[in-house]
Amino acid sequence: MSDGILDEAYERLHRTGPEYEGWLSNHGPMAVEALARHGHERQVHRWLDDYLGRLDELPRGLRPIDDWRAALGDAKRTGDWLTYFDQHLREQPWRDVLGTWWPRLLPGIAAGATHGVIRVGHAVRALHLHGANPPRLTELGQALGYWAARWQQVTGADRLLAPAPSVTDADHDAPDVVAALAGLPRIDDRTGGIRERLGRLVGVPRWEPALAALRPARTPTEAERGLHTLVHHAGLDYLRFGHAEPVMLVHAVTAPTAVLRTLPALDRALWAPSLAAAWAATAAVTSVYAPSDAVAPPSVTDATPEEVFARAARHGDAHVVKLADAVLDAHAATGDRRLLDAAGYAVQLI
Rank of each mutant, 00 (worst) to 15 (best):
R136S: 02
L181T: 01
T155P: 15
P297W: 08
W102S: 02
A170S: 15
M1A: 12
L340M: 08
W94D: 12
V117E: 08
A223P: 07
G4D: 08
L106Y: 00
M30Q: 14
A333M: 09
L236T: 02
P246T: 05
A283S: 07
I194L: 12
H130V: 06
W68V: 12
A281V: 07
A75M: 08
V44G: 08
R218H: 12
A252M: 07
A276I: 03
W207Q: 03
H88N: 10
A332L: 14
P264A: 05
R215I: 12
H115L: 05
L161I: 02
A70Y: 11
Q142L: 10
H115Q: 09
R125M: 12
E222F: 15
I187Q: 09
L98M: 11
V320A: 06
F309R: 02
L266V: 06
A333F: 00
L161A: 09
W207Y: 08
W94V: 01
H319T: 04
D56K: 02
W151P: 06
H14K: 10
D49H: 04
L249H: 01
D329S: 14
L105I: 11
V124Y: 05
P256N: 06
V347F: 00
E307F: 06
R104I: 11
L328Q: 04
G316V: 13
V120Q: 02
D317L: 14
P103R: 02
R69S: 12
A31Y: 10
T219R: 04
G61Y: 08
P103E: 01
S2M: 13
T257C: 15
Q92S: 13
V300P: 00
W151E: 01
A9M: 11
G335M: 12
D302Y: 04
P264S: 00
W102F: 01
A9C: 00
H251M: 00
V117T: 14
P205S: 03
A31H: 01
L227Q: 08
R104A: 11
H88W: 15
Q87M: 10
T257R: 13
R15P: 05
R150Y: 09
P163Y: 09
V231Q: 03
P107Q: 01
V259E: 08
Q92K: 07
L105P: 03
A180L: 12
D329T: 09
V124N: 10
A283H: 07
F85I: 00
L323W: 07
D293K: 11
L13P: 06
T16V: 08
L260Y: 03
